[in-house]
Design a protein around this nucleic acid. Sequence first.
DNA 1: TTGAAAGCGATACCAG
DNA 2: CTGGTATCGCTTTCAA
Lengths: 341, 341
Amino acid sequence: MKKSTIKDVAREANVSIATVSRILNNTGKGYSDKTKQHVMQTIEQMGYFPNAIARSLINNESGTIGVLFPAVSGMVSAEMLHGIEAAAQVYGKSVFVCNTLSDPDKTKHYLQLLYEKQVEGVIFASGRLTRNFQKIVKQMNVPFVTLSGISDLENIPEIKVDDLKATYDATNYLIKHGHTKLAMVSGPPHDSIAGTPRMEGFKQALTDANLPCKSSQISWSNAFYFEDGKHAFRSIMKNHPEITAIVAASDEMAAGVISEANAQGIRVPEDVSVIGYDNTKLAAMTVPSLTTVSQEFDVMGYRAGELLCQCIIGEKTDSIIMKHKIIERESVKKTKARGVV
Amino acid sequence: MKKSTIKDVAREANVSIATVSRILNNTGKGYSDKTKQHVMQTIEQMGYFPNAIARSLINNESGTIGVLFPAVSGMVSAEMLHGIEAAAQVYGKSVFVCNTLSDPDKTKHYLQLLYEKQVEGVIFASGRLTRNFQKIVKQMNVPFVTLSGISDLENIPEIKVDDLKATYDATNYLIKHGHTKLAMVSGPPHDSIAGTPRMEGFKQALTDANLPCKSSQISWSNAFYFEDGKHAFRSIMKNHPEITAIVAASDEMAAGVISEANAQGIRVPEDVSVIGYDNTKLAAMTVPSLTTVSQEFDVMGYRAGELLCQCIIGEKTDSIIMKHKIIERESVKKTKARGVV
DNA sequence: TTGAAAGCGATACCAG
DNA sequence: CTGGTATCGCTTTCAA
């Protein structure tokens, strides 16, 4: 049983396809109320749905956008994607998801694919849009937006939180609560998205507070996972047993720190305080629950989707720096206040 | 600057569009090696990419599939989606994601949308495909697959683990390790996917072991979250302080149980053992780490994608029951063995 | 080996 | 208010 087309409807309703088309698109004129009734009815009973692909071809509008993630597994990207989809929904766009695995070849492949599929815009999430992709991006000639990422290309609006400032604030939060011997559990130092800026924020906060800041106070790993946090904490405790507070570059790492502290009989927050980063659901689940820097990923995703859709209709093109805030839970010990509260 | 089309390439290369098309599709015949070289070159330098939409229209193959989730936020759906995308990749399909929010109207809307976009197949994940959707599904006339869900319609292959059996095994695991006073922290009893079958598995295991099984041993919530686990544990401890082991319907709930136990000064696993469900990353992060039933969501996603693509090319149509296994960590106390080990 | 031309399903302009 | 028709970009016969 073949799918019915506009032609079938026209034949069945004894009108021209032009008329059916007008009714379908609700142009308001070009048909009488009576024919409309009649045509709508036959459409209904035939179970006809217009072919969006044919429409796209003639209108030159695919009604789709593409989203590139290193990997959609994981809380963070999941929430972002959710937000993106919600926004796309509102603007009547469908979304293609792609997992680049951070592989440049794969990424380029996907961009070409999206190009061929005539997407109207692309969200590049959690990655770095390098000059490598300049050519294809330019050719595609549709709006791009980076989400919690970074772009080496010009004129690409971005949605992100100011990681440096956020980590600065987190560090400062510990300092304000009386901590003077701090360490950081960081991601890869050359990760220009979540590595470098967060380390920098940590350092600046220490420096501004006239606190010692040696590189040995930062223990970094190749990723941001639970195990990385455990290892990092172990090495910190070896080199700096005097530490009383730790800034982690992700909630998972912070959870690793708490877990390892527990294993070593070090109490959190009595002996050592911990502040996390992201405010994923995990932060509420640790024991003790995690004080952390909040990034609202679903909102960020929504805003990214929204921004992209606005760019598509030529409405707006400004970057958005999302505000962050510190969510206070139980993992930080508050002793004497130091300086302005 | 308009996008260049096959026509432009033809003109530029001084051949007919038919020839360009043949070369593009690598038909192998219909052009000389020399023209091929030449055409490929001009394609390259023009930066031409074929319009997939026009291709879809004439080939009647969109090269896309749709995935419906209640919500892509959350570890579980994220991992599934990752697997799906990976499989789709292999079969050369792009994937549209849709968040139904478990709303029937929205779901129907998305199905229609996917229909119009001419998707070649649909994965219906973590939800129930009711008779409500029968009409549209039938009309679409493309393969459907349910993933970790349930279908009231005929002939829809499914990928899932046997929830009843898995919970049975989990319960039995506790029994084998000497526990006789058990309780369950369950999701919604009328949730036919992750509610009813898991409760049933729990009950059957108790019954088969000749252990008491009153309905008061099961505390259910409207969802499967951390907070639900906390509440449930509280009420269980009120009604059944004698309990020594708990079966949770999700890792998050199990984490809630552990957290609440902690707050009440009840030790895990010394005073009460806990077994989770899902084996999400969270399970490794709790203190103590969680013994749990493993579902490999990324693999399930991959298999679902694979299965769907095989259905599309008419290759295979059998359901897949994924095997589950129990991942032993630290949250279960092993006392005397009881019965066969 | 090539090219001309007939569609794929829908839109929109132009006549009537 | 209506219908005929060119067109969107590409594939695929059918002749040459």
